[in-house]
Structures are given as structure tokens and as C-alpha cells.
Computed example of a mutant assay.
Amino acid sequence: MSMPNFQARPVDVNECVRTLVADANIEVIPLKGADEKIHSAPTGTTVTITCSPKFGLERTVQHVASAISQGYQVVPHLAARMVESEQMLRDFIRRIVDLGVTDLYVVGGDADQPLGKFYDAESILLALREFDHGLTRLGVGCYPEGHPKIENEALIESLVRKQEYADYMVSQLCFDAGALVTWLRQVRSRGIVLPVRVGLAAPLKTAKLAELSIKIGVGRSLRFLTKQHGLLGNLVLGRDYAPEQLLIDIGPDLLSSDLDVEGIHLFSFNQIEATVDWQRRIASNY
């Protein structure tokens, strides 16, 4: 297993928040113009390029190549349901490795029906064991608030199996620090030891964040945020959501080796300039 972004653990919460935010991965959706928007981030930043039914694997590879050529570290997403065959899988891996990629984030994907025999992240991970792919890190998703189509126990059992082949996990969006910590303690008690990259929404206008969060199935967490952190008032006033609040609310647990928070995965929704500005503010304020 490769090492996380920072090896020496911060000694206090503020330092930890600052380090996590500075080293965060920024998720980019390969929409038209995304390769220009990425210029807002300093070269050397790690960006992750998503994979969706709308755009397919080819669009992901194109944006991976563009980002790498501009000096960024890149983690592609691979959606299992978008892989038509084992040959397509091998070709995709060969192309990204030839570009210099060493880290791959494997997900099931949002397509209603798989294009081939691969239907979830586990099926891809098993296939990757059958050839010398050249990747050194593999990530998988996890769901602190559950999945709209999969029972919680099945999710945990799947994660237990996948950790044999993976190096880290990335959590779905969550706005409830208590729910996140409780879930992490639960899965650690079940023997899941993968370090976690906490999925955090970038600083969007609150109304847009509410719309996107409901679409991707984190409505329960959004309702918590509405009640506990004045989201409703922010909606009315048009204020921005403050991502750092979740980290602050986790508090000293951020420093816990038991929870093993490796880093942050920022869902930017392609608002990269605003995301980078927020990172700079955190660096100067904490």
C-alpha cells in the first residue's frame, strides 16, 4: 500500500484542517471547457477526472491526458458499468498508465444497465488482478449515509471484500460530522482498515449545493445541515456553504489514527476557481 499525502500527523485540529484542505484532491467532471477551468488550480495539484454514462471512457481519457500535459497529478475514475469488455478494460488501463497515471478510483457507475460483464467496483478489482496493470494505488467508494439502491449490510460486506484489493476509500458527500464519525467507527469495528478520503462539497452557492445534493442521494445529510447549520437562512440570503465546518465539527477525531482520515476529496462540480480560492483562505486563516 502506498503512503498517503502526509506522513507526519498534525498535532492539533487547526493544523490538520489546514493540511487536509491544502492537500485535497479536486474532482473534475469532463464537461466542455473543464480543461480550461483547471488552470485555476496550481500545477502539481491532484485532480480526479470522473467517468459517466453520458461521456464514456474516451472522454475521461482525453481529459486525463489534457490535465497531465498541463502539469497536474491525475486520478481517473473508472465506472465498471461503462466497460464493455475485458479488452476495453485493458486498453483503458494501458492508455492511462502510458500517460503516467499510477492511481485509479474504481466505482460501480450510474448507468442503469452495464455495457458488459462488469457491474460493480469489485468485479473490476478482480479483473485487474489478472494482469500486470502497472497501477500502484486503487481507490473505492464508501457510503456513510447509505446508498439509495443497496442495503447497508451489503455495502459493508462488499467493502470488507474490496479492501483486499484496494488501498483507500473515498466517502460520498456527507454534511453530518457525527454520522461520518459514527460510520467510520462502525466499519473499523467490522475490520475495514482502508484509509479514508472524506468526500467534501466545494464552496458552492447553497441553493446549487442543495439541488446537486438531492440529485446524488444525500438528502438526509442535507436535512441535517438545514436544521443544524442554518442552511435555510443561507438559501434565503444566497450565502455560500463553508466546507471546513464539517472538518471543524469532527474536531479531535480528525487526529485519530483509529479513524485514519488520509485526506479530502473535493466535489468541485467544476467550480474550480472558487474551490482554489477557498483552499487559499483556509491556508491563511487556520
Rank of each mutant, 00 (worst) to 15 (best):
M1E: 10
S2G: 11
P4Q: 05
F6I: 12
Q7K: 13
R9M: 13
N14K: 13
E15R: 12
E15G: 12
T19F: 00
I26A: 12
V28L: 14
D35C: 09
T43H: 04
G44Q: 03
T46M: 11
V47D: 04
S52Y: 09
S52G: 12
P53H: 05
K54H: 10
G56W: 00
L57S: 11
V61M: 12
V64P: 07
I68V: 15
S69K: 14
S69A: 15
Y72P: 00
Q73Y: 06
A79C: 03
R81M: 08
V83W: 05
S85N: 06
E86M: 10
M88K: 12
M88H: 12
L89Q: 05
L89D: 04
L89K: 06
D91Y: 07
D91C: 05
F92N: 02
I93V: 15
I96F: 08
I96E: 03
V97E: 04
D98F: 03
V101G: 06
V101P: 00
T102R: 15
Y105F: 15
V106A: 03
G108V: 08
P114C: 02
L115M: 11
F118I: 07
Y119A: 15
A121W: 10
A121K: 08
L126V: 13
L126I: 13
R129T: 14
R129A: 15
L135W: 12
C142Q: 01
Y143R: 04
E145T: 08
G146Q: 05
K149T: 11
E151W: 05
N152S: 13
L155M: 10
L155Q: 08
S158L: 14
S158G: 15
S158P: 01
L159D: 01
V160R: 15
K162R: 14
K162L: 10
Y165F: 15
D167F: 07
M169G: 01
V170A: 07
Q172M: 06
F175Y: 15
D176M: 04
D176A: 07
A177F: 09
A177K: 06
G178D: 11
G178A: 09
A179Y: 01
A179L: 11
V181D: 05
T182K: 15
W183D: 01
W183G: 02
L184S: 04
Q186M: 13
V187C: 06
R188Y: 09
G191I: 08
V193T: 15
V193Y: 09
R197G: 01
R197S: 11
V198C: 03
G199F: 09
A202K: 04
L204D: 00
L204W: 03
K208L: 14
A210M: 08
L212G: 01
S213R: 05
G217L: 02
V218Q: 07
G219N: 10
L222R: 05
L222G: 03
R223G: 02
L225N: 05
L232I: 10
G233A: 13
L235I: 14
V236Y: 11
V236N: 07
R239I: 00
D240R: 15
Y241E: 01
Y241M: 10
Y241V: 04
A242F: 10
D253F: 08
L254N: 07
S257R: 13
G263I: 00
F267P: 02
F267E: 02
N270E: 00
E273K: 14
E273I: 00
E273N: 10
E273Y: 05
A274T: 10
T275I: 06
V276L: 10
W278E: 01
Q279T: 09
R280E: 13
I282T: 11
N285F: 08
N285A: 14
